[in-house]
Design a protein around this nucleic acid. Structure first.
Lengths: 213, 213
DNA sequence: ATATATTTGTTATTATTTTCACATTCAGAC
DNA sequence: GTCTGAATGTGAAAATAATAACAAATATAT
């Protein structure tokens, strides 16, 4: 094993492998090969092995991987062996959906606060959470030890929210607003654009089809 | 201009450029350079020009690009110069959010049907849409000329829904369930995983930090 | 008209990522 | 013990993508 820069694509796949391993484990499967993982998530077996090789040797030649062990390792690598508190900004339809989304509430994630500036939304219950006004943010960041913020507000408010997050010491931002945000270099930021892949589909149905590619 | 395989990353960025151009146009900007686009969406100017070069020559040397024209071209390339009807499966929180999501209702997209198998959801109104039972799907696919399906159901039901979509002649699927679906080769399918990027953030805050990378 | 400042389109270069191929290792059968 | 079949880990090769660099083209000022 060598330690070098890990491609982000590798981390992406690791997250997917780990979810697949969770399912295997739940189904009582104890051993799995790179080929079976590959088949299960839609990549090549060599890719699976190469990805894992960035982090160590987890398998047994001639046998494969122990599901429980590999799951534990992948979770550890992803940083999911510790709890993470999230703050979600925006209690509209998307924010609401994210608050109840399984992926944001399982594993080590925990939504510690939902914020909105709309008086008609403040105080509303989402599960056992209550929508908070923005001015409660600094206090809750501290009390809940929040390091990651999620932006689910309209484009027009996104930069302002990002600034607020940075000002209050958050270290990472997951941005669902389709706009490039300006944040300092030390802030980890990733964008999730819900419609980009939809437009990849229309591109493929249209343009590519026309060219017979 | 040469015609060769267009990288998917290029199509992804094109979608982002086009949204940025829409904003410029709305703000009355008439001309833009590759550098300004790059700055606005967070890539390099060379990347912008390279991406556009796959499809033609749209700019004027020494000047830049005409915003309205380039917007029109990018929309055309993405297949957004024609209307697209969508079917959304799953009227839970995520399905609900997608039904009201701007990106799925602007440009040339139009949600032509929402389906669920839960009797407590069927008949409910989402905007001016009404949640339909699954058995209405074949009829609505035809009457609304639906070619793209969106999966917003739990993992346990996702494959079944995908099969139903394929059986009814849909050509493309946008899948929000975190599982690899099995579909015939001629079906265009893309997955949107809402929590993968969240786990990239925790990876970067944890593992990478530990290694000082 | 000419010179100058810009900015594109494109080729060459560099970097990154994926695939391939195989030696190595292990478990189990005999 | 030894042999056989299976699956890993990895270095080399191939494919892909991003960056850099620059000639070509255009508008503007003089």
């Amino acid at each position: 094993m060598k330690t070098l820069r890990v491609p982000e694509a590798t981390v992406t796949r690791l997250s997917i492998y780990s979810r697949f391993l969770e399912r295997l484990d739940k189904n009582g499967v104890t051993t799995v090969s790179s080929g079976e993982i590959a088949e299960g998530v839609g990549v090549s077996p060599a890719q699976v092995r190469k990805d894992l090789a960035y982090f160590g040797e987890f398998g047994t030649r001639g046998v494969g991987y122990n599901v429980k062990d590999l799951l534990k390792y992948t979770l550890k690598i992803l940083g999911l062996d510790q709890p993470w508190s999230l703050a979600i900004f925006g209690a509209g339809n998307l924010g609401f959906a994210l608050c109840t989304y399984r992926g944001f509430n399982i594993r080590s994630f925990h939504i510690a606060g939902v914020f909105d500036n709309d008086p008609t939304r403040i105080g509303k219950k989402i599960g056992n959470l209550e929508v908070q006004p923005l001015d409660k943010f600094p206090e809750i960041v501290k009390s809940e030890n929040i390091r990651i913020g999620v932006i689910a507000v309209p484009v027009s408010a996104a930069q302002e929210v990002a600034d607020l997050m940075v000002k209050n010491g958050l270290e990472a931002i997951l941005n669902f607003a389709p706009v490039a945000l300006n944040v300092p270099d030390h802030i980890e930021i990733r964008n999730v654009d819900l419609s980009v892949k939809l437009e990849i589909l229309t591109f493929n149905l249209g343009f590519r089809a026309a060219q017979n590619l």
